[in-house]
């Protein structure tokens, strides 16, 4: 029952998002035929190209035919590139999906241990150092961080390329190598936020009576935190991770530009500039779907971890 409601919500969100995109692109001045043919073009040629692109049809017709295509897995044809949008997105997803996963993993990998240590050593030197670092990570724009990483590792040390993506066919190692710096630039601000959330949630849980009881029964601090405080701190952490995923996706637009990565973010940015409606609509739809699904998964996971919510959900 719950799952069905979730699914309906997802469908409604996706429908609303695509409708918004179609309307927004309509309001934006400029059209892809003009952009493609430029300043000297013959108006007849522009009109012909608009017809070829299907832009002369009324908006509801365009929207309906696009929606019909999407339901059968066909995202239409890119006006500028003249190739199926599905192919364009698949080409780009092999960069953005690993990048986003690496970003989440790195963010969690940094935030969990640092946040836990800060919580356990509350008020001590380690805590202050961790919170100082978190403040730094939070204040640094990821674009600047990306440029600094490029400068240090590509220009000064010569350890990594200054951007670009060699493709998975050039070897998994090289491809991963090209994604490490962007993933770090993407993850650091998120890790900073998450560290503070982890610390706060664990600290709150540590003040609960059941942790005091565990300690009174003779459990040492470490195990008390790990087995009693942390499980109760998971729910807020997971909710934030889900929300952060959305920021990660929008951050990818910037980071992919900085690192010259051929990902979905950069495709979206170029498509907006070229007024390539089909590509914009397709990419946004996929991104919205991913964010909504990841959030639902995080919520589900948080509920599953908490036995009370588990029973509340089924009841």
């Amino acid at each position: 029952m719950n799952a069905l409601r979730r699914l309906l919500q997802l469908a409604a969100t996706l429908f609303a998002a695509s409708l918004l995109i179609f309307l927004a692109m309509q309001v934006l001045p400029g059209d892809p035929a003009e952009v493609l043919l430029g300043m000297n073009a013959d108006p007849v040629a522009i009109a012909a190209l608009r017809t070829e692109m299907g832009l002369d049809r009324p908006l509801p017709v365009q929207f309906a035919s696009w929606l019909g295509g999407v339901l059968t897995g066909d995202f239409g044809l890119s006006a500028t590139y003249d190739v199926p949008v599905t192919d364009l997105m698949l080409e780009r997803a092999v960069v953005t999906v690993p990048l986003a996963i690496m970003g989440v993993a790195l963010s969690l990998g940094i935030a969990l241990p640092v946040g836990l240590i800060a919580a356990i050593r509350r008020g001590k030197g380690a805590d202050r150092a961790a919170m100082g670092l978190a403040l730094f990570g939070l204040s640094v724009p990821n674009m600047w961080l990306g440029l600094m990483l490029i400068y240090v590792f590509a220009v000064v040390l010569g350890l990594a390329p200054a951007g670009g993506f060699p493709g998975w066919d050039s070897g998994v190692g090289r491809a991963f190598g090209a994604l490490i710096m962007p993933a770090i630039a993407l993850a650091v601000p998120q890790a900073a936020i998450l560290t503070r959330i982890v610390r706060t949630s664990v600290v709150e849980a540590m003040d609960e009576d059941y942790v005091t009881l565990a300690r009174a029964k003779g459990r040492r601090l470490g195990p008390a935190v790990l087995y009693h405080a942390l499980p109760n701190a998971w729910a807020p952490i997971l909710t934030i991770v889900g929300l952060q995923f959305g920021f990660l996706v929008s951050g990818a637009v910037v980071i992919e530009t900085v690192f010259s990565l051929p990902g979905l973010g950069r495709l979206l940015f170029q498509a907006v500039n070229q007024r390539d409606l089909m590509v914009v609509a397709g990419v946004v739809l996929v991104l919205v779907a991913t964010v909504v699904i990841v959030n639902a998964l995080c919520d589900g996971l948080a509920a599953w971890i908490n036995p009370r919510q588990r029973t509340a959900a089924t009841a």
């Binding site: 440029l147 490029i150 400068y151 590509a154 220009v155 010569g158 390329p161 200054a162 951007g163 670009g164 530009t257 900085v258 690192f259 010259s260």
Partner: peptide, 16 residues
């Protein structure tokens, strides 16, 4: 294709 001017400089200095 390298869009960012600062990255353009870096890519030149790094020899990419």
């Amino acid at each position: 294709f390298i869009t960012d001017p600062a990255v353009a400089l870096a890519s030149l200095l790094a020899g990419d």
